[in-house]
Simulated assay, not measured.
Amino acid sequence: MWWQTARSRMDLTRQGKIMGILNVTPDSFSDGGRHAGVEAALKHARTMIRDGAEIIDVGGESTRPGAPEVAIAEEIARTRPVIDALRAEWDGCISIDTSKAAVAEAALLAGADVVNDVSGLTADPEMVRVCAASGCGVVVMHMQGDPRTMQVAPHYEDVVAEVREFFEERLATLERGGIRREAICFDPGIGFGKTIRHNLKLLRDIGSLTVGGRPVLLGVSRKSFIGKALGSDDLADRAWPTVAITASTREAGVMIHRVHEVKPNHQALRMAEAILQGVNFPE
């Protein structure tokens, strides 16, 4: 399995990848303000790369439930300098986390390789054109509603079937729009317009969400459903369950894992692969 990005093809045949989260926002739900500014962002990116991240996902607008929308100029001002600086010192894969075509275009010009769009390239009518023209990789996420309304009353008849149908529609539509199949990756959008039951059902049946031979990306890191499942309000209690989900879903075929704590998730990924693939080690 290969994933085509703007500058390279990522081999996902045997080894999964860790996408490290780099929020350069003042109000993200778990790390708002901690990495705002180029120097703070670069410092954190370097740590994640050292710990095993092969993709750095830069986000300039919080998508937590109820988050206010950020103006295009402000989102570009937060993200482009960070991407410029990171690209100047690192040849790895950089992703821009945005649903705005103008923000994506600015990031791609600065050296980003991937557009990670929580709306599945539906929020901005120009996004398909921008992505097709650049040849970038795209992450197509499923979300019911939008970040301001998504957790009001999410409802599905069959959440797995409906997410899969969304992926099938997006694959056909994006290919017609000029985006190559090889550039597309799908994310079921855990926590985006889903109850805890919906999230757990998607994780339980994650292996059935592969569409068109395209890879699945999973982002569960620090999400509230973990705390609800454990009966804990402590954010720190969500870290090791995230590692457990990384190992479990890698066994089910998830190849890209978007996380905050890179090192333990990278180790879980490699350990799961050692078990799955029966790698030969010296006695």
Rank of each mutant, 00 (worst) to 15 (best):
S99F: 14
E54F: 03
V243S: 05
Q277H: 15
V115K: 00
A172C: 12
G59C: 01
G207N: 12
G20N: 10
I72A: 13
D57Q: 05
A112Y: 01
V163H: 02
S99V: 09
R197D: 15
H266G: 03
A112F: 02
E273H: 03
S99I: 05
F166Y: 15
I96P: 02
V58K: 06
T246E: 02
R148K: 15
V114Q: 06
L218Q: 04
P282H: 07
S224E: 10
R80G: 01
A112K: 07
R238L: 07
S30F: 15
P81Q: 12
S232M: 04
T173Y: 12
A106V: 07
P215L: 00
G253F: 04
P241T: 06
I275W: 11
E251T: 14
P264C: 08
T98V: 07
E175C: 12
R164T: 12
S30L: 04
S8G: 11
G111Y: 04
G16M: 01
I206W: 07
L218T: 01
G178T: 11
A268R: 10
L22S: 08
E61C: 06
D84C: 06
R270K: 12
A229Q: 09
I55G: 06
S208D: 15
E182I: 05
G207E: 14
F281I: 12
A268D: 11
F281Y: 15
A6F: 14
D124Y: 07
V115L: 09
Y156I: 10
A85W: 01
T79V: 14
M10E: 12
V58M: 08
R197E: 15
H260W: 03
L108G: 02
T242L: 02
T210V: 15
G33D: 13
R50F: 11
L209N: 06
G177L: 04
K43Y: 09
N199H: 08
W2V: 13
A244P: 09
D237S: 14
K17N: 10
G145E: 00
N280M: 10
A45L: 09
R222F: 08
D84N: 13
R87P: 14
Q144W: 03
F281D: 05
A172T: 13
L202N: 01
L42V: 12
R181P: 06
V70L: 01
D158L: 02
L22K: 03
